[in-house]
Design a protein around this nucleic acid. Structure first.
Lengths: 151, 151
DNA sequence: GTCAATAATATGCATGCGCTTATCGTAAGT
DNA sequence: ACTTACGATAAGCGCATGCATATTATTGAC
């Protein structure tokens, strides 16, 4: 194998990200959800979350900026935000049935378009790509930092 | 193979992108180059380019925003920007020897850190990942649009 | 009962982005 | 000559971001 001639990962990923976002936006717009909103729905569909700060951290968002998103989602009836009876400072966050429906519809639309993109790849590369992406995106930030650090 | 349960590609890629950028920034800062500047150097190291608009398009940048970047690079002696004697409206863009040196140094630093990331992957997935990334990032925007379009 | 810590929230700032418009010098077609 | 088109540049807009700070309600420790 030769010295692995390729462009930088970020350089390749950046335009691809933009393309993927461009693919997602119309699907999201159709259901009136923002990107962050969709991210919230996805997180809450996995499991309810006890505090907004925890939610923000889970999806890599800013804990103050997320508030508007939650307002919108709650206004649209897609999530519930109820004060914890045990500690009335915290809001218990959960997705509603409507939210679940919206999330599924959006996910299906996005997935269908992604499939068309991935279909251009050889099967082996495609599997490797998705698996590598899953593995890398699952690395905890601490791990990433240690890999990134020092010369 | 079951119905391919995974998160959306963009959702996985977004945090990964951020991590990669965090990896690159210190390397770039060390050499006093910006992300866009590095992108320009990379493009020009491949081949000189005849107009700034063409450069901008090649690297997916905005043709007006790129000007400051070019000023900086030229000021640092990393690129040359000479009026085309044949058409004095256009500036012939080329990387200088110094620019080449900087680009190589930055690329080496980035590559070394990327390798550490990729080393966490099984060899097969890793190759598939890089190849898929190369293939997808090489798709012309028109192709991407057609793949993205319609339900 | 007082006080320090915490969750949610509001607000402001600096930055960078994509986009648009305007200006200026230059080219090229008629 | 006159007009149209083009490349580089400057300036400004609207938007989203990350970050920092302040406020309010609530809690728990002392």
């Amino acid at each position: 194998m030769q010295p692995d001639d390729r462009r930088d990962l970020a350089a390749m990923m950046y335009p691809l990200m933009r393309a993927l976002v461009a693919v997602e936006l119309p699907v999201l717009a159709e259901r009136g959800v923002s990107m962050w909103g969709y991210s919230v729905l996805t997180a809450l569909d996995r499991t309810p979350i006890r505090t907004q700060a925890a939610l923000a951290e889970a999806i890599g968002a800013d804990k103050t900026r997320i508030i508007g998103t939650l307002d919108e989602l709650q206004g649209a009836g897609l999530i519930s935000r109820t004060p914890d009876p045990g500690d009335r400072r915290v809001r218990l966050l959960a997705i509603t049935d409507d939210g679940r429906r919206v999330r599924r519809a959006v996910a299906a639309g996005i997935r269908a378009r992604e499939e068309r993109l991935l279909a251009t790849l050889p099967a082996g590369d495609r599997r490797g790509f998705v698996r590598a992406l899953q593995a890398l995106s699952a690395l905890p930030p601490a791990e990433l930092e240690s890999l990134a650090g020092g010369e």
